[in-house]
Amino acid sequence: MSEALLTLKGVHTHIGQYHILQGIDLVVPKNGLMVLLGRNGAGKTTTLRTIMGLWHASQGTVNFAGRDITHSATPDISCAGIAYVPENMGIFADLTVRENLFLAARNVKKAGEMDTARLEWIFGFFPALRKFWGQPAGTLSGGQKQMLAIARAIVEPRKLLLVDEPTKGLAPAIVRSLIDAFLELKTTETTILLVEQNFNFVKSLGDSVAVIDDGRMVHTGTMAELSGDMDLQQKLLGLALEHQY
């Protein structure tokens, strides 16, 4: 495999009195799409938030593109080249689609100066964004908001994309358009770390996969290996499903 873009070593994260991540080791290879699987409460979101500096690791190190970002502030981590699409999408409901994308385009001073070629490329797989360009983002449907959240993360090229459960609560047709978008994104230079519970959604997308349970990594490998091995799936994900509710 290619070199590592992001490396987590022995990361522990506490939220208040709760010890959520209990020594996470994770290597995200450069280029391609890595899927982080695991049941509810396993620590997937906490892992992403720790990478993003929204929560800080109490132990261990986070290394990104040769730089130690364990204790960096969120804006610095973002500027280093990581984009984040949180589970709640974090769109600014009061601002228009255009203004949301304008703020995400950090190097652009005026809304009119956004890279039109790149916008066209985004409209190519998310046409709804063109349609609702001047509307407050709060009036979009759930799926359209998700598209906006992802568009915001890619409106300027970033090295790494962290995406937290993009298919949650979305209709199958929209999930299909998200798959297309991720397939398109995979052809670019961007590396993607995707958190999911929906194994069917990521089966066709992922290059590599990591499974997390109770704040620890329980499996890492290639997606081909996991999707071909029913026993392993049963062991890792069947177990996960049992615990799910």
Partner: peptide
């Protein structure tokens, strides 16, 4: 203005404004 939009965005979701790279 961009600053004004950032203020409005920050009122709504400050964490996300930081995640987009603004202090």
């Amino acid at each position: 203005t961009k600053i004004g939009l950032l203020i409005r965005a920050g009122v709504e979701n400050g964490e996300m404004v930081e995640a987009l790279g603004y202090r």
